[in-house]
Design a protein around this nucleic acid. Structure first.
Length: 297
DNA sequence: GACCAGGGATCGT
DNA sequence: ACGATCCATGGT
């Protein structure tokens, strides 16, 4: 990877496995705007980023080296060797199945995906909101909460963007106010999550220092957080790359490519552990995006 | 353990 | 237009 500073911009070249469209649109994050083809504005970690990709060249507009190094390098998972992960997954699938599997083609098609290292609180609330909702609606709610309760993050093309609210701010919102943001029955879940963090039941620090399974157990103490939401939070904000969140899409694609019949989630989870192991999270993201694009039924 | 509410935008017909 | 669906979960 080559890093250049040009005017006020940071330019990346020769980045392996990086497609800004696939990274943002694959369903792992919700706080961004598409401006043009492969040109986006996103708000993350209390920073605003205007980013554009043309071929192999990626421009981080109005970004200094210090911000790039301290915020975006880790956010975009730039120190991870994705080629090694892809190769391992394809080889291990072959070993377990004793023949070539379907994952290789999925990975080739979605090879520009990276798993973002997102903020814990924002990820937790976003995935509580996500249940039974489609991505455009999740984005709308995250946006509404940020505008109403977050700090200004900056302006691009005459549009003001807002940071995701702090836990203190969000915890003081009333149930009825929260429902005005279209959160519906999830409103008490969001408030319960704030409560459990503020009273110390849930500690990000200890979640970072334990196994995926332990972290999932602890997160599930929050009302409205089940196995799927907890797995997403662990994968996207706690570096648990062995997490394998199973939703309807993953269930459908796994049933199609490995089982060829209806299969309980518990069995799918066990199988994923065996075939994808410590890289389950990456496999899940390739498969999820692929299945959604396919519009699998 | 199977079923159903809950809330509303979006998608498919 | 309008009904079905939706990156689940908790309660019954």
């Amino acid at each position: 990877m080559k890093i250049k500073q040009e005017n006020n911009n940071i330019i990346l070249e020769e980045v392996d496995s990086f497609d800004i469209e696939q990274i943002l649109e694959c369903g792992q994050c919700f706080h961004f705007d598409k401006l043009e083809e492969k040109e986006y504005v996103l708000v993350a970690k209390d920073h605003l980023l205007h980013i554009k990709q043309v071929g192999e060249k990626i421009t981080f507009y109005d970004t200094d080296e210090h911000t790039f190094e301290t915020v975006w390098r880790s956010y975009f998972d730039l120190d991870r060797d994705y080629s090694q992960i892809k190769n391992w997954l394809i080889e291990n699938e072959k070993r377990v199945l004793n023949q070539n599997g379907a994952l290789e083609q999925v990975i080739i098609e979605k090879s520009g995906i990276r798993i973002l290292n997102q903020d814990f609180f924002e990820t937790l609330i976003s995935f509580i909101i996500s249940q039974n909702k489609q991505i455009p609606h999740i984005k709308q709610i995250v946006n509404t909460l940020s505008i109403k309760y977050g700090e200004p993050a900056g302006e691009i093309n005459a549009k003001e963007y807002y940071c995701f609210p702090t836990i203190e701010k969000l915890s003081k919102v009333s149930d009825s106010e929260m429902r005005l943001c279209k959160t519906g029955f999830r409103a008490p879940y969001i408030l319960n999550a704030c409560e459990k963090i503020l009273d110390g039941t849930i500690k990000e620090e200890s979640l970072l220092n334990c196994s995926f399974r332990q972290a999932r157990e602890e997160l599930m103490q929050i009302k409205g957080v089940g196995s799927k939401v907890a797995s997403c939070v662990a994968l996207f904000s706690l570096s648990k790359r062995d997490a394998f969140p199973i939703d309807v899409w993953i269930k459908r694609i796994m049933e199609r490519i490995y089982f060829e019949k209806e299969t309980p989630k518990s069995e799918i989870e066990q199988f994923a552990d065996r075939i994808y192991g410590e890289y389950g999270g990456y496999a899940q993201q390739y498969l999820f995006y692929y299945a959604r694009d396919l519009g699998l039924k």
